[in-house]
Amino acid sequence: MAEQLPEIELEDRGSKGRYFLRGPNGAEAEMTFTRIGEHKFIIDHTEVPDAFRGQGAGLRLVTRAVEDARASGKKIIPLCPFAAAQFRRHAEWHDVLAS
């Protein structure tokens, strides 16, 4: 089902930003982040409305952040409970986990 989801978009506002999926009827699933310096950022919140539930939207958002962190040499602090749970489930992401 995840293939049917819209493409993830990035909204970057300097020290803060978000990854989001825009769905039917204006529904948005989002994962917000805050930058800490040049090499780290905090995933602070993930919200998936009912329109996206059961489709893997939250996991896709966190996965995109992990991919972007890897590509840019950054580390992630997953303060959001959902993101933290995903990091515990995905040992292959530990290379971007801030210590």
Rank of each mutant, 00 (worst) to 15 (best):
A51P: 12
S15K: 13
Y19S: 08
L59R: 07
R53L: 13
G26P: 11
S72T: 14
G56K: 04
K16Y: 13
R35G: 02
K40Q: 11
A57W: 04
P6E: 03
E47D: 13
I76V: 13
Q55C: 11
S15E: 13
F33H: 08
Q86S: 06
R13Y: 09
R60K: 15
E9N: 06
C80I: 11
Q86H: 01
L61I: 04
I43H: 03
G37T: 10
R70V: 08
V48E: 01
S99R: 07
A2H: 01
H45E: 06
R18C: 14
A85W: 04
Q55D: 03
T63D: 15
V48T: 07
L79Y: 08
L61G: 11
L5W: 03
D44H: 05
N25F: 04
D50R: 11
F41D: 06
G58E: 03
G17V: 14
L10T: 09
I8T: 09
S99L: 00
I76D: 02
A85R: 02
E92D: 13
Q55V: 07
E38R: 11
V66S: 07
G73T: 00
R70Q: 06
E47W: 06
T63P: 05
D12L: 06
K16P: 06
D68F: 09
E9Q: 14
T34Q: 00
E38C: 02
E28F: 13
E9D: 05
V96L: 01
P6Q: 08
R89V: 02
V48A: 08
I77W: 08
G14C: 00
V48R: 00
K16N: 07
V66T: 10
S99K: 10
V48M: 10
R60D: 08
P78V: 15
E28T: 04
K75F: 15
A71L: 02
R13S: 10
K74Y: 01
L21Q: 09
L5C: 02
C80R: 03
T63W: 10
G58A: 15
M1G: 09
W93T: 02
A65H: 08
R70K: 12
I42H: 00
R88P: 07
E11V: 11
G14F: 05
A65W: 14
R64W: 07
R64H: 08
H39E: 09
P81K: 09
L97S: 05
G56Y: 03
A98W: 12
A29M: 04
H39L: 13
E38D: 15
R89Q: 13
H90K: 12
K75R: 13
K75H: 13
F52Q: 01
E30Q: 05
W93L: 04
A29F: 05
V62T: 08
P78Y: 11
D95Q: 08
A65E: 06
R18A: 15
S72I: 00
E67Q: 14
P6D: 01
R22M: 15
H90E: 05
A65S: 12
A2F: 05
R22D: 04
L79T: 14
T63R: 15
H45A: 10
V66W: 15
V66R: 12
A65L: 12
Q55H: 08
P24I: 11
R22L: 15
M31V: 05
